Computed example of a mutant assay.
Amino acid sequence: ANANATRPWQIYADLAQHLIAMARPLYASEPFGVDLDATVYAFDATTIDLCLSVYPWAPFRSAKAAIKLHTLLDLRGSIPSFIHITDGKTHEVNILDDLIIEPGAYYLMDRGYLDFARLHRLHATSAFFVTRAKSNTKFKRRYSQPVDRTTSNVICDQTGVLPLFYASKDYPATLRRIVVKDDAGERIIFLTNNFSLKPEMIAALYKQRWQVELFFKWIKQHLRIKTFLGTSENAVKTQIWIAVCTYVLIAIVKKRLHLPHSLYEILQILSLTMFETTPINQLLTPPSGNFDDENQPKQMSLL
Rank of each mutant, 00 (worst) to 15 (best):
R141L: 07
R141T: 15
P146Q: 06
V147I: 14
R149D: 09
R149L: 10
T150L: 12
T151G: 07
T151C: 11
S152R: 11
N153P: 01
N153R: 10
V154C: 11
I155V: 15
Q158T: 11
Q158R: 05
T159K: 11
G160M: 14
V161W: 09
P163D: 09
P163E: 13
F165D: 11
F165W: 03
F165M: 12
Y166H: 08
A167M: 06
K169H: 10
K169A: 10
D170T: 03
D170N: 15
Y171M: 11
P172Q: 10
P172Y: 00
R176N: 07
V180N: 02
V180S: 06
K181D: 06
K181I: 14
D183E: 15
G185F: 00
E186K: 13
R187W: 07
R187F: 08
I188V: 15
L191C: 07
T192C: 09
T192V: 14
T192K: 14
N194M: 05
K198R: 02
I202S: 11
A203R: 06
A203E: 15
Q211T: 00
E213K: 15
E213Y: 14
F215W: 12
F215M: 06
F216T: 05
W218A: 07
K220V: 12
H222A: 03
L223D: 00
L223T: 00
I225K: 07
K226P: 01
L229T: 07
G230I: 06
T231M: 05
E233N: 05
N234L: 01
K237P: 00
T238A: 12
I240D: 03
A243G: 14
V244E: 00
Y247L: 10
Y247K: 05
A251Y: 03
I252E: 03
I252P: 08
V253E: 04
K254Y: 09
K254Q: 14
R256A: 01
H258R: 08
H258E: 06
P260D: 12
H261E: 04
S262C: 02
L263Q: 02
L263K: 04
L267T: 06
Q268S: 13
Q268R: 11
L270I: 11
L270W: 00
S271I: 06
L272E: 05
